[in-house]
Design a protein around this nucleic acid. Structure first.
Lengths: 208, 208
DNA sequence: TTGTCAACTGTCAGTGACTGTCACTAGCCT
DNA sequence: AGGCTAGTGACAGTCACTGACAGTTGACAA
């Protein structure tokens, strides 16, 4: 059971989150000040910083949840599955469950708009890539444990995850530039790209 | 021939650069203020910002040069070479030429120390990854042109570059944590990792 | 050499992201 | 009801960065 105090806190936090994403996606991240966000929710600037460590953190609050869901999805894959296959399946099949979690916090449409804002704002893109790097490390350790190899002496877990993440990055970027950006487009395109990695590495592109 | 004014400018810029790297690597990036850097060279803070767009830019001034050198090395590879091979060779063989260019600006030892600082400072790591992403885009376009494919319809150039960059990232991180961090270690390790990518993707790790 | 112009620089004031402090209010618990 | 404490607002201060303006110095022609 949630006490009144906790309810108020949660409401303030979610209000700040929604207000921030709304402002970021409409007038741009750089042109939005923390004061504006605080004012929109009618709290002091100091209070904003009590809920979020910084302007950047609020921009990634939803991403935090989807990332955690993805890692959990990988963890839930059957242990006999090959590493790359586990990553692939978790990514392709996880989207529907993630969608619900997101919707309980903010409209999915706002989430997608925020995604585009991240891709097109240098400061946010940088933060996104660093956060992805952290997730990659988590995944590498996860796969290493699954397969019973030592992540510090065997480079294969990190290599596999790096390649997977690289492909997803290309997909994300491609999708965020297209009009039909959504879970379905992301799924079909990433599936296609994951299939093509092999030929991209070894193939003679001019042959076709 | 270099005029007196130009000489003075170059000296100020290089002094600022060296002072900044020295301070960043000894007391840390976050704990170094722009005022400190300016004071160390005895110029005003305003002047610092006339030479460098921000605190971040000075941290990557040397990386800028090495990155440009790498792209140039790829561009100089024989046109018949397969894409991945061109990337690989440019990276492995380019290091000696790069070393000289770096040394003319700052001691290589300082450059390597700065590299570690970048890897271990979240804000700098984020910037580094974003800069790498920009370089990847350049390389993808370069390879696409070489091979005569369209970078916007054929995903293979971006995929190949993403995989290559991913492997290099793993190598960089591994190296920056080791004691024997240097061009040689970087070369041997990246060569080894590039060889293992295939098996990391397809292989059954538990077999060995 | 000297004077003029343009480039370079310092000073100052201002914004925006953050942080520490402190007093105050409002929910919680007895 | 009253004490305790989490949560908040107000205020002051730091640091990165920017614009405006004035002073200084090297370049170049007369």
């Amino acid at each position: 059971m949630e006490t009144l105090r906790e309810r108020k806190k949660r409401r303030t936090r979610e209000s700040l989150l929604r207000a921030a994403l709304e402002l970021f996606t409409t007038q741009g991240y750089e042109h939005t000040t923390v004061d504006e966000i605080a004012e929109a929710v009618d709290v002091s600037q100091r209070t904003f910083f009590r809920y979020f460590a910084g302007k950047e953190e609020v921009a990634f609050a939803v991403q935090n949840i989807t990332e955690a869901a993805f890692v959990a999805a990988v963890r839930a894959r059957p242990p006999h599955e090959a590493p790359m296959k586990a990553l692939r399946q978790a990514f392709l099949e996880g989207w529907d469950a993630i969608r619900e979690t997101v919707e309980s916090l903010v409209p999915v449409e706002l989430y997608l708009r925020m995604y585009r804002t991240i891709e097109s704002t240098p400061a946010l893109l940088a933060a996104h890539l660093r956060r992805s790097a952290a997730t990659e490390e988590t995944l590498a350790r996860l796969l290493a444990e699954r397969e019973g190899v030592d992540v510090d002496t065997d480079p294969r877990p990190r290599l596999a995850v790096a390649v997977f993440a690289g492909v997803i990055r290309v997909t994300e970027r491609q999708c965020s530039l297209r009009e039909d950006f959504g879970p379905e487009a992301l799924r079909t395109l990433s599936a296609a790209y994951l299939d093509q990695v092999g030929s991209a590495l070894t193939g003679n592109w001019r042959a076709a």
